[in-house]
């Protein structure tokens, strides 16, 4: 019986590994590496890379700047409505990206709730790189905030108290004690959020259009466009790049968090 159980587990594990591993491997094996590299130098791919880098890094900056104090507050203070705030922040995690795109469109689109007022002042968000940033921020923010709430929550409050009695105010204590002690969690959260922003597709496609090369066309959108144009090699080249980035992010996150959490 014991042998049978082990065999079943082994087969299941092999099947699972193959199921996940084979498609990833296929990206790299379908065409020779030289073709992948040359396709990565195509104008479409280079433009998409540039747009993706710019928008995802701006998104990340915004997420870190706004998310860190919010996460700190949520980790430290217990106030009525705290659970509601946390749930609201986590909604994009479970929301289908297409729904997120529609939601953003309904709010900031030309005829949207806020967008109509913005349009009156000649501010148009949809179909600009700002829209891409907003879509990415919307879906990637919870990855950072959740991780950082946990990391700040794990900082020993005695150390903050010690810092205060040693003459450092709340602000200085935050930067000299809490941030250094939570730095692994902060970095891991940022890496995860950046990877999520880089891979954003659905919300961007609906809210930012995403088919204007060099403006709103990020890597995932470019892959989709090239796929429709039957340029499979270009798709594979950009995919290979994203696989490499995703893998690097995942490994670095695990190293930062000490391989303990997943």
């Amino acid at each position: 019986m014991k042998g049978a159980a082990a065999a079943i587990t082994g087969i299941a594990a092999a099947a699972l590994l193959l199921f996940v591993g084979l498609p990833i491997l296929a990206i790299f094996l379908r065409v020779p590496p030289s073709a992948l590299l040359s396709q990565l130098h195509s104008p479409v791919a280079l433009d998409a890379l540039r747009v993706s880098m710019k928008t995802s890094l701006v998104s990340l900056a915004f997420i870190v700047l706004a998310g860190t104090p919010v996460a700190h507050l949520l980790a430290r203070r217990r106030f009525p409505g705290r659970a509601v705030v946390i749930t609201l922040i986590e909604v994009p995690l479970v929301l289908p990206p297409a729904v997120a795109g529609i939601a953003l469109f309904a709010a900031f689109g030309r005829t949207g709730l806020l967008g109509s007022h913005l349009a009156a002042h000649d501010i148009r968000i949809p179909f600009t790189w700002i829209a891409v940033v907003m879509a990415q921020t919307f879906v990637a923010m919870p990855f950072y905030v959740r991780q950082v709430i946990a990391s700040f929550g794990a900082v020993d409050q005695q150390l903050v108290g010690a810092s205060r009695t040693l003459g450092a105010g709340a602000f200085r204590s935050f930067f000299r004690v809490e941030v250094p002690l939570a730095r692994q969690g902060l970095a891991a959260g940022a890496a995860l959020a950046w990877a999520r922003a880089l891979g954003e597709f659905g919300a961007t496609a609906l809210f930012a259009g995403g088919f204007v090369q060099g403006v709103t066309q990020t890597l995932p959108l470019a892959i989709y466009a090239q796929f429709q144009g039957a340029n499979i090699t270009s798709c594979l080249a950009m995919s290979a790049f994203l696989v490499a980035v995703s893998f690097a992010v995942l490994v670095s996150t695990k190293i930062l968090l000490g391989w303990r959490e997943t």
Partner: peptide, 11 residues
């Protein structure tokens, strides 16, 4: 204030 376990900054 001297804390029970010292509360030294580990970093």
């Amino acid at each position: 204030l001297m804390f029970q376990d010292g509360a030294l900054f580990p970093h």
